[in-house]
């Protein structure tokens, strides 16, 4: 008899969730950050509905502080799958006076993304927002459901979550409320890389080791760019680095690495002793910073 391996099983589980969203909701949207997890999500969505087109648009919340490589890759992916792209802009939210820019050396637009995201969800009347969050990433995300209910303010109530049993998902809600849905909840970082390698998915160059001008702050390397306020004593130097996660330039750390291809990356992360979000300065603001942000509607 054929043996279903763990990647096949995870793939089938995620495809099941994606189809369940298309069946249970009227107007879903797929949140696309440009990172490997959302790239995986787009590939899985393509497989779930093949040969029909992906039946929901991609939504990118643009902080305006991107690695240029991210935008380039995003546009090529959208073209490849004939998908529809919607961009929610943090800059617009700032211009409209909905939020104001953080100041100081650690200023980041990461927190402001929440407002732009909720704004975009409301404007598009989306009733389900698919995201590529995984439970192994962070302790608050470990408690997340596949179908995660959000009230009319987009808030998450972690103490009052709907139970999920077998493969029965309850997407009922009142008008104005929505769901966040996380089809790849059960994947680990290693699973994602093994799958992307097996499927030979082309990836943004940022994930592979390259020379880059960086600064070092609180033990984390940050890419030097016009959006970071440098302290007077912070020096710019060149290192061979790669991104382990891709987010806003201002809060995504880069790693010293020699991994030039996917096989090297898999070797690197199966021996590393640091978690992938270890380089995210947004998580380091406090012990419960992810839980606090998620309650307010952060992705």
């Amino acid at each position: 008899m054929r043996v279903i391996n763990h990647l096949d099983e995870l793939e089938s589980e995620s495809i099941y969730i994606l189809r369940e969203v298309a069946a249970q909701f009227e107007n879903p949207v797929l949140m696309f950050s440009g990172g490997k997890d959302s790239i995986l999500m787009v590939y899985l969505a393509y497989k779930a509905f093949y040969p029909a087109k992906i039946p929901f648009p991609l939504l990118h919340i643009d902080t305006g502080h991107n690695f240029p490589e991210t935008i380039e890759y995003r546009d090529s992916l959208v073209e490849k799958f004939g998908a529809k792209l919607i961009v929610g802009s943090v800059q617009e939210a700032i211009d409209q006076g909905l939020v104001s820019e953080e100041v100081g050396f650690n200023a980041s637009r990461n927190g402001l993304q929440t407002t732009a995201l909720l704004e975009a969800l409301e404007k598009g009347k989306y009733d389900a927002a698919l995201g590529g969050a995984r439970r192994d990433e962070e302790k608050a995300r470990a408690k997340e459901r596949f179908f995660s209910h959000r009230d009319e303010f987009g808030q998450w109530d972690p103490k009052n979550q709907r139970p999920e049993l077998w493969n029965l998902f309850n997407g009922r809600k009142n008008m104005g409320e929505h769901f966040r849905v996380f089809p790849i909840s059960n994947w680990t970082e290693l699973d994602v890389w093994q799958y992307l390698a097996k499927e030979e998915v082309p990836l943004p160059s940022l994930y592979f080791a390259h020379e880059r001008e960086v600064i070092e702050r609180d033990g984390t390397l940050l890419a030097d760019c016009g959006f970071i306020n440098k302290r007077p004593d912070e020096k710019v130097f060149v290192e061979k680095v790669r991104c382990r996660t891709i987010g806003d330039v201002t809060c995504t750390g880069v790693w010293r690495s020699d991994a030039e291809n996917v096989e090297d990356i898999i070797k690197e992360i199966s021996t590393t002793r640091m978690t992938e979000r270890g380089g995210r300065t947004d998580d380091k603001r406090s012990e419960t910073s992810m839980e606090d942000r998620k309650k307010l509607g952060y992705f």
Partner: peptide, 8 residues
């Protein structure tokens, strides 16, 4: 990469 033939 090759060592992916494991059950869940």
């Amino acid at each position: 990469i090759k060592n992916t033939n494991s059950e869940l």
